[in-house]
Amino acid sequence: MRHIISILMENEAGALSRVAGLFSARGYNIESLTVAPTEDVTLSRMTLVTRGSEEIIEQITKQLNKLIDVVKLMDLVEGPHVERELMLIKVKTSGAGAREEIMRLAEIFRGNVIDVTPTTYTIELTGNAEKLDAFIVALDKIPIMETVRSGVSAISRGAKALHI
């Protein structure tokens, strides 16, 4: 099963490599991983998407908790939560009617065109992973030059929060 593990950790040099190293050393897989400081700059928040049986996820959370830099963590999949991913996608606008088609698709998906040149558009889109995938499929024949995805960010719904 897919799990989203949110981790609050000390904003220390090397903290990220400890998490990455743990996953590679113990053979756990990482589907995506994002990390950035929180409103408290001494803390980073990491969102890690992984898959595994209940036993493996239990080990993963225990092993993560054992890392000295990890302050707190939570498996968001255990409760209601919202997840979002940001995608920046650069496409060619050369074909006849391509510009109108791209604008129309971006509108349907509630994306924004954030950069324009005579031959390219760059679109910004947020949503869950399926929505971003669907947009790529919808682009169909329009040539994609570049895709950048942030990986999943997620937060629990309601009053529940991961904080110290």
Binding site: E55, E58, Q59, K62, Q63, N65, K66
Partner: peptide, 11 residues
Amino acid sequence: IDPASISKNVK
């Protein structure tokens, strides 16, 4: 003392 040692190999 180590929670990660518990139920790692044997339930």
